[in-house]
């Protein structure tokens, strides 16, 4: 097939795959953003647990990061994707038997799984960032009579961002790429899945997987620009 007709397959018309790829791009960004938000929350909790005085909290957090880092993302994704439903079913069954019939949004389950995976890596990034804040500052804040929450809000969080941003940026880039794994679940209309569908129907594998790859590259380029801008902003007081 010549090039002109290949590109006509990618048109935005009713029979072209152009619009499908735009939708896939949107889904991939949505999944990545939502999963990233969850990993931020889990990362903060995890870092707090790792730095806490409680042995139990430290143990749980260590187990979490060790397990996630040792297991393939695909395996974790499938495990959480399938178990998410059963775990919630179990919890609900403890409350009442009325919840026998319920529906799990596959999008939410995939997001939860990716967020859980990202959270482990985020824990390490945030732990490192908190540790880089000079201890003297926290002691000084304590000496000023600031409460623990106030110290967190006024001293730790604002400075932490500066140290954590490079790591967080890398994790965002990983999150966008890891989101492609959900295509394996077969019910998420993400970018790679569109590549799969379009190539399976049209048999132009090389072309459509290249289109998907180029769009992923576009996400990366835009992300890198935004990260650079953010880094410049949080570092503005330091040059």
């Amino acid at each position: 097939m010549d090039q002109a007709s290949l590109f006509s397959l990618l048109s935005f018309g009713p029979d072209g795959w152009g619009m499908r790829f735009v939708e896939g791009l949107v889904v991939t960004v949505e999944v990545s953003v939502a999963a990233y938000c969850i990993s931020l929350v889990l990362g903060l909790i995890g870092a707090g647990a790792k730095l806490s005085n409680s042995k139990v909290a430290r143990g749980v957090a260590d187990l979490y990061t060790t397990l996630v880092r040792a297991l393939p993302e695909l395996l974790l994704l499938l495990l959480i994707y399938f178990s998410g439903a059963d775990a919630i079913k179990f919890i609900l069954s403890l409350i009442s038997e009325d919840f026998d019939d319920f529906e799990i949004n596959p999008f939410a389950a995939a997001v939860a799984a990716l967020g859980f995976i990202g959270g482990a890596y985020m824990t390490e990034v945030m732990r490192g960032a908190i540790l880089s804040i000079p201890n003297g500052q926290i002691e000084a804040a304590k000496a000023c009579g600031m409460s623990r929450f106030l110290i967190l809000r006024r001293v730790i969080l604002p400075q932490m961002l500066r140290y954590a941003l490079p790591g967080m940026g890398n994790l965002w880039l990983s999150a966008t790429k890891d989101s492609s794994l959900i295509s394996v679940l077969g019910n998420t209309q993400d970018l790679l899945f569109m590549g799969y569908r379009a190539s399976a129907v049209t048999k132009h594998y090389g072309f459509f997987y290249s289109v998907a790859a180029i769009l992923f590259l576009a996400i990366t380029i835009i992300s890198m620009i935004v990260i650079k801008m953010l880094e410049a902003r949080v570092n503005r007081g330091y040059r």
Binding site: K177, S183, Y205
Partner: peptide
């Protein structure tokens, strides 16, 4: 370096396996 790091490994794998298979 940029392309390898900027695209998902799964997309690269599919592209190499099925894309090359086409030729």
């Amino acid at each position: 370096i940029f392309v390898m790091r900027g695209t998902p490994l799964l997309a690269q794998t599919y592209l190499i396996y099925y894309g090359l298979g086409e030729f």
